[in-house]
Computed example of a mutant assay.
Amino acid sequence: MSDEAHHSPGRRAVLISLLGAVASAACGGGGGNSPQPAPPTSAGTSDPPPAPVSRLALNGSSMLAPDGTPVILRGINEGTWGEMRSYDAATIAAQGGQVVRVLIRWWGLYGGTDVESRADPSPGHFKPDHLSRFLQEIQWCIDAGLWVIPVIDSNCGQNGLQDAAMAQYCDPSGTYPGGRNFWTDLAQRQLFKEAWVYLAGILKDYPKIAFYELLPEPLAGRDSSYGDDVSAFYQELMAAIEDQAGDKRTPILVGPRDAYNINLCDEAYIADPRWTNRVVYTGNLFIRTNQTQQQNIANLESRLGALVNMKTARNVPVFIQQFGVRSGDDPDQFYLDAGLSRLNAAGVGYTGWQWRQNTSSPSEYAVVIEDATTGADVVKTAVLAVYSKYWKA
């Protein structure tokens, strides 16, 4: 999702009583710093290198926890920049969630102020305070025992033609009529690759990193001639993460062109043996409610079926990185329940869209919204109850 907003500075959020009991369990986090090895035990000797941090292992269509047991990750997105609170991760874990998808925004027009994190002269081409915030959010999740999916999002890089304002922002000189993005401007592609190498160089020593999601929703509206271009882009970044950042263990999450069109998921398959048991495949699964209930459910099942069929036919792991339905379109949580029950039955993991959003509208996706007067947290308890039921199933 490309919608984005930034919270007002100084606003203090107070979680309602439903979550108060679990909020106290949250750990403050350590700013994302990984543990350091102990000093030498005696003169002239040093400890052996620290054990590798925990990672999922991929084996055919299965994901395995570090102890070798099969795992299906279910959780939610912290998708709105700057909105996550230190206690959110512990709350999500207490409700049964296992994974959180955390995004940083890089090169793009986003709503609100100070959302874009790109700063070319800075290390990794990130604004230092934004990178610190991103790593802090990741650490909060790790401290709560959750797996984390770090994502670098770029509205310009993925397409650059979402609307007239985006096109103007990404390409102010009008040099790229087909959109200024990572396929038409290779200089920007190089900077983005360097950003990923820098970030992976940090995160490779963090525990509980589930997957790196390299770039969400590439090339919306593009035809099948762009399928190979998307695959080549992902493989270029994957190779850089392995060869330059030295991370050969963290799985990579990729999806198809046309903005992660789940019906095209098989097109994203990477056949190169180098990437066997290294890649997880995804697609968006937002629920549509514009037809009859029967037709809407059939549409949901068809799109989920495309990903399940790929899992079986290709013997690869799959994951839904954005699942959801607007609360205004689902007042009794019928569709939310229907979607989550089908995901669980199919054995497909997911992160719901989304946990927190700085809006007072109850019609949006978020589980936690703002009180229109005070800015305090308002939790959609019925929505959370449905998520929690299936997270704990």
Rank of each mutant, 00 (worst) to 15 (best):
G82Q: 02
Y206H: 13
L340K: 02
L215R: 08
C156K: 01
V115F: 07
P40K: 06
K204Q: 09
L253A: 02
Y390F: 07
G82R: 03
S122L: 10
D185V: 02
Q98L: 03
P362H: 03
W353R: 07
E4V: 07
A119P: 07
A393L: 06
P50D: 12
D67L: 01
A119E: 15
T276G: 10
Y350Q: 09
I320W: 11
L18D: 07
F211R: 10
S154E: 13
P9F: 14
G30Q: 13
A90C: 14
V386P: 10
A5V: 07
D377Q: 01
G339P: 11
W275N: 00
S46E: 13
V386N: 08
N284P: 00
P256S: 15
W353F: 13
D337T: 15
N59G: 09
K193A: 03
N59R: 15
A382H: 00
T282Y: 01
F233P: 09
M166F: 00
F192A: 14
C156P: 00
A200G: 05
P48E: 10
D143L: 10
G305A: 13
A51R: 07
G10S: 15
R278C: 01
G60C: 04
P40N: 12
C265G: 08
G283S: 03
P48Q: 02
I209K: 11
A268I: 02
C141I: 05
A165D: 04
A382V: 10
C265F: 04
L135C: 11
V151H: 02
V148W: 05
S61M: 15
A346Q: 10
A57C: 05
Y169Q: 01
W140D: 09
T312L: 14
T184V: 00
V71W: 15
P216C: 07
N159R: 09
D266V: 09
L237P: 03
L15D: 05
A165Y: 11
R278N: 05
D258G: 04
Q333L: 11
T276R: 14
T45S: 14
L214K: 01
G96N: 03
D272M: 06
L253I: 04
Q235P: 01
C170H: 02
R222V: 11
F334Q: 05
S154L: 12
L203W: 06
K127R: 15
V325G: 10
P251E: 00
D3I: 15
I16T: 13
T289I: 05
G160Q: 07
C170A: 00
W353E: 05
F233I: 10
P66L: 14
Y281D: 09
V316Y: 01
N315Q: 15
Q295P: 00
P317L: 01
